[in-house]
Design a binder for these strands. Structure first.
Lengths: 209, 209
DNA sequence: TAGATTGTTAATCGATTAACAATC
DNA sequence: TAGATTGTTAATCGATTAACAATC
């Protein structure tokens, strides 16, 4: 990293996966090099912004030529922490939990989902994506015995905080929260909310505005 | 609306559902009034920002007192278009499509999911959330005969553009896109992307940064 | 009335865009 | 070399925060 002192804004980080997506597309089309100008046309960002964003992390380009698709893809992947092999568990084996359990992308991003917990006896014991759903009453014992980096919450909002606390107290450092509530965590723990409600609300607003 | 000419930034719109969530919480706790200061403490936004945001749409507060929880909740709901009764269909009856089909919040937000389409024969004919999954080969005929306001895409990225085009050509004005690709739409059509990949990538980044 | 809190204008801050020298 | 495009500084733009008069 070029300058680990400079604070990088969240807006920059959120654009990185978008760059990555387009770079993968280019790679699939066997395109070797790309300029900030062309990448700007593809993504809708300005070339200037793309160069600014990338230069937060290093000078990945070459004057007069642009960027190598493959190496820029790898650089961004590495910035985002791909290949880190973190362990995650899903709390909530309902429909959304099951959908996520069979989500192929996890491994690519560097997160391995190792277990799923639910409280519904109909779900416990069933298998999904190669993982057998366990009884959530075993969760406390489980997190004391197994390292869990990320908890994925697909449970009703009422119990989101309770499970967050349990996970965080036992070493989890990230929460991917699909519950429609905010959870409190101590300093150093990351929460990424997926707010389907909010996303839908924004869509509904723009439908008529 | 106080001033329908002034351009309201997307950042403001994205905060509205968050305010709404907290207002609902307050209402459930039987709290009648709230000041921007207290709402700021709850949400993490500054009181100033909250007042600025709300005043884009009107003067909902009362000097010396604050805001009525109930009426502010209703105002924001109405701004977002709740209760509009739009029709939506889900394209893709896989796990994620099924999870969304049984998603209670739709009706509250003003979107009624009336049908689901899939191409997998194992899914076609099965029922989910009171809706029977139909064969996607019927989709073209369907959209010509039925008004569809919003298409909800829970399909692989390869076919996202194709179904977007079909929907938009037949009158859909909103796309809630869960496919991990960007879809192109003509002016006047709204796309709201839910990028699980990107959200997870951002979480992974902050896990170590 | 006095205290509280809004609505709104002005100041600040941060993010985006433009410009251009460096250089491949 | 000449042309192209980066990396980076400076300028602009927009969003957030501060301040305060209006007023309940």
């Amino acid at each position: 990293m070029a300058n680990s002192e400079k604070k990088i804004s969240k807006a920059v980080i959120r654009r990185l996966p978008i760059y990555l997506m387009y770079l993968e597309e280019l790679e699939n089309k066997n395109v070797k090099g790309i300029s900030s100008k062309k990448l700007g046309e593809m993504t809708g960002f300005t070339p200037s912004q793309i160069r600014q964003d990338l230069n937060n992390f290093g000078g990945f380009g070459q004057q007069g030529y642009g960027y190598s698709v493959n190496s820029l893809k790898n650089e961004i992947g590495s910035i985002l922490g791909y290949g880190k092999n973190k362990k995650g568990i899903i709390i909530g084996g309902g429909k959304l939990g099951k959908a996520l359990a069979s989500y192929e992308r996890f491994k690519y991003v560097g997160l391995e989902v190792v277990d799923i917990f639910d409280r519904n006896p109909d779900n416990i014991g069933t298998e999904i994506g190669g993982i057998t759903i366990r009884d959530v009453s075993e969760l406390e014992q489980y997190v004391k015995n197994n390292k869990v980096d990320v908890g994925i919450l697909t449970i009703p909002k009422e119990s989101a905080q309770e499970y967050t606390d349990l996970l965080v107290e036992n070493g989890a450092r990230g929460i991917w929260n699909f519950a429609s509530t905010e959870v409190k965590v101590p300093e150093g723990v990351v929460v990424e909310n997926v707010r389907l409600n909010d996303s839908l609300s924004v869509l509904m607003y723009y439908l008529d505005n």
